[in-house]
Design a protein around this nucleic acid. Structure first.
Ligand SMILES: [Zn+2]
Ligand SMILES: [Zn+2]
Length: 649
DNA sequence: AGCACGCCGACT
DNA sequence: GTCGGCGTGCTC
C-alpha cells in the first residue's frame, strides 16, 4: 500500500494546518480523526502533499463517504481567515462548534409537507423579484418599511430557486426567529423548513443539519450560525434585517454575518438578498458605488399612514415625576382613559442609573470594571451591567461613606412611577423582569389581550413585534443612545426611531410617536419619514468629512491584562512600531488609550485604533501588530483584533 | 485551547 | 529527596 501525505485543517487556535499520512486515498473536504498531542480530534482534509521532512502521525479514521465540505467552503474559510487576519484553525473553531464538526450524517426521511397558502404579489414586488437573476453573483439590497412586503419578495425568489433544484438559506436575527415566522414560511413553501439556531436540542439540530447538508431539505431558516452549515447546493442566501448589530460576532473571528454572506455568495456565484427597513449606511454606500443593487419598496401596506411624529424639547416642558415630558404623560392619561394601548420605550434597565456618594460626590463604580453601577430596587441591590457583580452594600471607594444619592432612571423607576399614576395598567418587559422566553411570551400575550394599556420596555420590544392596537409610542431614552462614543450612534438612533414609528398606528388606527430629548435640534429628527435616502445622504457626508467607514477601513486592537503597567507598555510598543512602518503613511494610528471599558472583570484594557484608506494596508498592519504582540506579551496577556468594529465601547 | 515540560518552594 | 505550583511553548 502506498503512503500519501495530506494537510489537515484542525479546529485549534493556531494556523491549524498539520500534516498526516494515510494508506488510503483521501479527498479534499472529507472529515478525518487524527491524533494531536494526547487528544484525538476531527479535522478537514485540505490537500495531498509531498512527503515532508518532519515526522508525521497517521490518520486514525475517515468519517465521510463523500466530502462534507466543498472546495468552495474551504476557499470561504481561507478568505475569512485572510480578511479578519485570524488564524485559519481559529476560524474553523469559531464558526463550527466541536459538536457540529463531529456530527454524524445519518439517513434522512422526506421533509414534512405543510398546507400551502399562495399570495399575490403587487406589481412593485413582482418587478423586484423578476429582476433578480439566478445562478450568478449579484448582491441585492431591498429597502422597504416594516410590512411593505420584503418577505413576499424573498419567498417568491426562493420558490424560483427551489424550483430550479437548488437550496435557499434564509438568515434572520436570533430574536426574529419566531414560531410565527416558521409557520408563515411553511404555508408559503408547502413544506416545513429546516431550522437552525443555537437553542435547538442536539437531536433537532442533527436532523435539520443533516436534512440541509444532504439536500434533502431545500430551505433553511436560521440565525447567524446557519451560514456555516456546509450545504453543497445553495442557490440563494437571504439576510433579513441586514443592519442588525447582533450579526457582528464578538469573539474571534469577529465577522459580520452580512459581509460573510456576500463573500460566500461571491465564491458560490449566486445571488444574495439583503433586506431592511433601515439599511446600514455601509450598505447604502455600497449600493451607490455599484457593488450592490438597491431596490426601494415605497408602497405602504393597506394604506397605513405614517404616524404623527413629535419631538418634545425637555428644556421647554414640565417633566412629570422629573422624568416624563408632560405631553407624553398627558397622552398616556388619554390612552388609559380611552382604554387604548401605548408603548413606552426606554433603553435603560434598573431603578437609578447613577449613584453618587453623598459626602464626596464620587460616582459608584464596579470594583472589577470601570463602569457606573445601577441600582435595582426590587432586589435591594446594585449591579454592574458588564460583569453582573452584585453589591448589597455600597461603600465609596474615595471616602468610605455608605450613603449614596440616586440619579437617572431606568425601566424599574419609570414602572414604579407609572404604576402609582395608572395602577394595574402597566406591563414591563426587559431582561430583568422577564427571565425566560416563556415569561416574555406570556407578558406579550397579556398585552395583546389588552390586559394592560401601557407596555414599558427596553429595545427588546422595539424589534419585530407587532401590536395592531397600539396608537401611541413614547420614546424616553434616545439621548443616551445618541451620546454613545460611537461613530454609528446617529445611525443606531435613526434605526431605532424609524422602527418604533412603524409600531404605532398600523392598519385602521392612526398613531402618534412622541420623542423626548434635550437636543431637539439634532437633524435626524426631521428625517424619520424614511421614504427617501435623506438620512443616508446626511450620515454619509458626515462619515466622509470625519473619515470614518465606509470611507475608511477601521480596526480596533484591545490589549487586556491584570497588570496595568505591563498592559499599557505592550500596547505602547505595538503602537510605536506600527507608526514607524513604511506603510504608516497610509495609516492613522490612535492610542494606546484607556479602552472605553478601561477595566473589565479585573483586567486592565488599552485600545489602539487603526484607520486606513485601503484594506490591504490595514491587514498588513494587523499582521505585524499580532507578531509584535506575540514577541513581547507577558503571561496571560490578550490581544483582540476587531476588524470593522461595531460596538465602539 | 489543551497539555507537557520545567524549574523553584514546602512537605514526608 | 519528591510533590505540585503555574509560567512557557508546542501541537504534524
Ligand atoms: Zn463589573
Ligand atoms: Zn465618597
Amino acid at each position: 500500500m502506498e503512503i500519501t501525505y495530506y494537510n489537515i485543517l484542525l479546529p485549534v487556535p493556531t494556523e491549524g494546518v498539520y500534516t498526516y499520512f494515510s494508506e488510503g486515498l483521501l479527498h479534499t473536504g472529507e472529515r478525518v480523526v487524527v491524533p494531536f498531542r494526547k487528544r484525538e480530534i476531527t479535522g478537514i482534509v485540505l490537500e495531498k502533499i509531498e512527503k515532508p521532512d518532519f515526522e508525521c502521525k497517521e490518520i486514525i479514521m475517515v468519517c465521510d463517504n463523500t466530502p462534507l465540505f466543498s472546495k468552495e467552503y474551504i476557499t470561504f474559510l481561507k478568505n475569512i481567515a485572510s480578511y479578519y487576519t485570524c488564524p485559519m484553525g481559529l476560524v474553523l473553531q469559531g464558526i463550527l462548534s466541536e459538536k457540529i464538526l463531529n456530527m454524524e450524517i445519518s439517513d434522512t426521511e422526506p421533509v414534512k409537507k405543510h398546507p400551502i397558502k399562495d399570495i399575490i404579489l403587487t406589481n412593485e414586488q413582482q418587478e423586484i423579484a423578476d429582476s433578480i437573476q439566478l445562478n450568478t453573483y449579484c448582491c441585492h439590497l431591498i429597502k422597504g418599511i416594516t410590512g411593505s412586503g420584503k418577505t413576499e419578495i424573498y419567498q417568491e425568489v426562493a420558490k424560483k430557486v427551489i424550483n430550479s433544484g437548488r437550496q435557499v438559506l434564509y438568515i434572520v436575527p436570533e430574536i426574529s426567529l419566531t414560531p410565527q415566522l416558521i409557520e408563515r414560511l411553511s404555508y408559503r413553501l408547502g413544506v416545513e423548513p429546516s431550522i437552525y439556531h443555537y437553542k435547538l436540542t442536539h437531536k433537532a439540530r442533527k436532523k435539520h443539519f443533516t436534512d440541509f447538508v444532504t439536500d434533502n431539505s431545500k430551505f433553511m431558516l436560521g440565525a447567524r450560525s446557519a451560514l456555516f452549515v456546509p450545504a453543497k447546493n445553495i442557490g440563494l442566501i437571504i439576510v433579513d434585517e441586514e443592519h442588525e448589530h447582533s450579526y457582528k460576532q464578538d469573539e474571534s473571528p469577529s465577522y459580520h454575518l452580512r459581509d460573510m454572506a456576500v463573500m460566500y455568495g461571491n465564491i458560490l456565484n449566486i445571488p444574495i438578498i439583503l433586506g431592511s427597513a433601515t439599511p446600514s449606511a455601509e450598505s447604502i454606500y455600497n449600493a451607490e458605488c455599484g457593488k450592490y443593487v438597491l431596490h426601494s419598496l415605497l408602497e405602504r401596506p393597506n394604506n397605513a399612514t405614517l404616524p404623527k411624529i413629535e419631538i418634545i424639547d425637555m428644556k421647554a416642558t414640565n417633566l412629570i415625576g422629573s422624568m416624563i415630558a408632560e405631553p407624553i404623560y398627558d397622552e398616556l392619561s388619554n390612552i388609559v382613559k380611552r382604554d387604548e394601548q401605548a408603548i413606552i420605550l426606554l433603553n435603560r434597565k434598573g431603578y437609578s442609573t447613577y449613584l453618587y456618594c453623598q459626602q464626596c460626590g464620587a460616582l459608584a463604580e464596579c470594583v472589577n470594571c470601570s463602569v457606573g453601577l445601577v441600582s435595582f430596587k426590587s432586589k435591594n441591590k446594585s449591579l454592574c451591567r458588564y460583569c453582573n457583580t452584585e453589591y448589597n452594600i455600597l461603600t465609596c471607594s474615595v471616602c468610605g461613606s455608605k450613603i449614596f444619592q440616586e440619579y437617572g432612571y431606568g425601566t424599574e423607576k419609570i414602572e414604579e412611577f407609572l404604576e402609582s399614576m395608572f395602577p394595574d395598567k402597566i406591563i414591563r418587559i426587559d431582561t430583568e423582569s422577564v427571565s425566560s422566553i416563556k415569561t416574555l411570551n406570556k407578558n406579550l400575550k397579556r398585552f395583546e389581550n389588552k390586559e394592560a394599556n401601557i407596555l414599558l420596555g427596553t429595545q427588546l420590544i422595539a424589534k419585530g413585534l407587532h401590536f395592531p392596537e397600539v396608537t401611541f409610542v413614547g420614546v424616553l431614552g434616545i439621548d443616551n443612545l445618541m451620546a454613545l462614543p460611537d461613530f454609528r450612534a446617529m445611525e443606531k438612533a435613526y434605526q431605532l426611531l424609524v422602527q418604533v414609528s412603524g409600531r404605532a398606528g398600523r392598519e385602521h388606527l392612526s398613531g402618534k410617536v412622541y420623542i423626548q430629548t434635550m437636543n431637539p435640534e439634532v437633524p435626524i429628527f426631521n428625517m424619520l419619514d424614511n421614504t427617501d435616502l435623506e438620512f443616508y445622504k446626511w450620515e454619509l457626508s458626515r462619515r466622509n468629512i470625519t473619515q470614518y467607514p465606509p470611507f475608511t477601513k477601521l480596526a480596533r486592537l484591545i490589549f487586556s491584562y491584570i497588570n496595568q503597567e505591563e498592559c499599557y507598555n505592550t500596547a505602547k510598543i505595538t503602537a510605536n512600531t506600527l507608526k514607524s512602518l513604511k506603510e504608516a503613511a497610509n495609516l492613522t494610528i490612535y492610542g494606546p488609550k484607556d479602552a472605553t471599558l478601561a477595566k473589565l472583570q479585573n483586567k486592565y484594557r488599552y485600545e489602539i485604533l487603526i484607520k486606513s484608506s485601503t484594506n490591504s494596508d490595514l491587514n498588513k498592519a494587523l499582521i505585524i501588530a499580532q507578531q509584535i504582540f506575540n514577541k513581547c506579551k507577558k503571561g496571560a496577556m490578550r490581544l483582540k483584533i476587531d476588524k470593522d468594529p461595531y460596538f465602539m465601547m
